[in-house]
Design a protein around this nucleic acid. Structure first.
Lengths: 237, 237
DNA sequence: CGACCTTTTGAAAAACATCAACGTCTGTGG
DNA sequence: CCACAGACGTTGATGTTTTTCAAAAGGTCG
């Protein structure tokens, strides 16, 4: 653990309200590590040894079944992931790998559980984190079941725009095929949908996205806070 | 609260390890209520006033968007639901309504949060419950993204069969159109898929399902513990 | 430059949704 | 007790969406 990182950690929602003693002891045990891009961190089916906290970079949560594969979520700093597997002491349902060079702090699951039992404020904060993760996946499922792929793409673009304070131009934060998988479609389908969306107020230039008609796009996406957020802070547990 | 229900509650995973004092005070505040079938309990978008515990009956979690609607989950006794909205103090992402006549215990969200902060063992148990709910939705999303509708139906039938200790004959626990929505398809599509599955080892007779060739059905569904469970206990938070 | 990967495009097939019509069942009220 | 409205379920015809397969175009990096 780098000493200079500690104050930043202390400010995270997960650690903000815990006892100083608990925090310090966890920081003593925790260690942080750098990973190169495309590094597998976790395989689905394994058991949780460490709570992961993404400090820098980006991590992709993926799931596979029967030869198929899908991107289930993207984790961005600063967020924990696989909290649920840690507290349930159950196998991971998803794999995790870095997208970019990433800095990750790891806390042994056993120590985490002990700290939770010792420090109610920490437990409450962890629950809130877990609750946000739960809600993220409810949203993901709603998105998949209630919207078609064009609507999902439109909503995604608007969501990204709003995360960046409403800019009308941005760069896709990941490869298109990963985005396609995240949105539940094939790369080919995404490519065609992108073209079709020109009529609805978006233009793509390579990896660059430009919203040419926000109102029209919003009408299509029918953005809804109960699907598209916001839930503050974390992404996946 | 009926006095004779208390011991049963005490045995629930959520309440099993909490302090007697916390338990008693919550039971003092909690009240239980009977609801008729098809009764709306919760509307998506509202704020959480009470943690709900389903003691008897069945509850359906639904989501709507832009005129579309989908069954997101089924809660069966004994389970809590909307725990996440309670701990996050955030609006419900789903609506809830009874399917059958149901008995539900309600605990004011504020008292719940106070109890969590006071009793670490309770907080840990609640976290585990929430973790199970999180994992349930990860599974739901994996199911939707990785399997097609025929595979989902096959997996559902096998899952139900296994929940009933591996029987080869059972009665569908809900209307077909609700099942269709839960599995992410239209009623018409379910109807046709049911017929198509005859070649894969299942026969339907009205609401009765008979597995005629378990091996064949399992080959189709490719049942996977990381999608189809088991995760013990609860269903939805 | 050339190997490798992503993205795009085209054509065909499969999966799925929609619309409309017709049984079937259930409970209600005449 | 029967008739009938209303809901559910099925079936058929049709249309849309999406996937699959194949090939070409574009980018990246050694």
């Amino acid at each position: 653990m780098r000493a200079e990182e500690k104050p930043g950690f202390r400010r995270l929602p997960l650690f903000r309200e815990m006892m100083t003693q608990t925090f310090d002891s966890l920081m003593q045990i925790a260690y942080s590590q750098n990973f190169p891009p495309r590094m597998d961190l976790i395989q689905q089916g394994e058991y949780a040894d460490f709570l992961h906290i993404l400090v820098e970079g980006a991590v992709e949560l993926r799931a596979t079944w029967n030869g198929h594969e899908s991107v289930m979520g993207i984790v961005r700093p600063v967020s924990t992931f696989i909290l649920a597997a840690c507290v349930c002491d159950a196998p991971y349902l998803m794999s995790a790998r870095t997208l970019e060079r990433s800095r990750i702090v790891m806390i042994p699951a056993a120590d985490l559980r002990a700290a939770l039992r010792r420090d109610p404020d920490f437990a409450v904060a962890a629950m809130r984190e877990l609750g946000v993760g739960y809600r993220t996946f409810v949203r993901h499922a709603k998105n998949l079941k209630l919207r078609n792929s064009r609507e999902r793409l439109a909503a995604y673009i608007l969501q990204q725009s709003q995360l960046a304070n409403g800019v009308v131009s941005m760069v896709l934060p990941m490869e298109k095929r990963h985005l396609a998988s995240y949105l539940g479609m094939t790369p080919e389908n995404l490519s065609r949908t992108v073209k079709a969306l020109r009529a609805d107020g978006v233009r793509f230039q390579g990896t660059q996205v430009i919203i040419t008609d926000p109102a029209r796009l919003m009408a299509l996406a029918a953005t809804d806070s109960l699907i598209d957020g916001p839930d503050p802070e974390n992404i996946a547990s």
